[in-house]
């Protein structure tokens, strides 16, 4: 009887512990780290035409916005993108140097499972990764995490989008707005 009561009380204590939004790094801190304190002016790229279609084919659906913000200094660009893991969006920050990923950081995680993707044992796999010469696949495979498959897929997909967008921005040769 005592055991039953303990389990019952514990069930109340544990309720509400899940489904919480976890902010691991806010966008301002991420950008300040990325650009050593002096954040460049925000620019944007339009997801229209071929670029829009390529992003849609990577994600399997349209990105929720037609215009994506980014920050650029020289060949270094920073991107903050969102994709739904299972039911809620995961916010991820990418820093890309030329056509290679420098770092990937999970900024906000809103699901109850799969938060392990924020740890270096997973994020370090994205260092120096790029896209295949032809196409939009990553040129190296990413090891998954059991129990976090959907989150891993979401983040890997976003990495491909970020690398594609960085390539598009740098191919214009100018810093600033990439017109539709």
């Amino acid at each position: 009887m005592l055991l039953i009561l303990c389990v019952w009380v514990a069930s109340f204590a544990m309720s509400g512990a899940s489904e919480k939004e976890s902010v691991y790094l806010n966008a301002d801190e991420f950008l300040a780290d990325a650009f050593e304190g002096t954040v460049p002016v925000k620019s944007f790229v339009w997801l229209k035409g071929d670029l829009g279609k390529s992003v849609e084919s990577i994600l399997g659906h349209r990105y929720p916005k037609l215009r994506i913000s980014y920050w650029q200094r020289g060949k270094r660009t920073a991107w903050i993108l969102e994709e739904i893991g299972k039911v809620k969006p995961i916010t991820v920050g990418f820093i890309i140097s030329g056509d290679r990923m420098e770092t990937m950081n999970v900024l906000v995680y809103r699901e109850s499972h799969g938060w392990e993707i924020r740890y270096p044992f997973f994020t370090d796999q994205f260092e120096a990764i790029g896209l295949e010469t032809e196409g939009t696949e990553l040129d190296r495979s990413i090891d998954g995490i059991s129990g976090a498959t959907l989150s891993v897929n979401a983040v890997t997909t976003l990495a491909r989008v970020a690398l594609l967008l960085a390539k598009a921005v740098l191919s214009t040769g100018t810093e600033g707005v990439v017109a539709p």
């Binding site: 944007f44 929720p64 916005k65 037609l66 215009r67 913000s69």
Partner: peptide
Amino acid sequence: VLLELETGDLIDE
């Protein structure tokens, strides 16, 4: 919030 006039699609926030 910026929306496309013709389609109502979200452009940016």
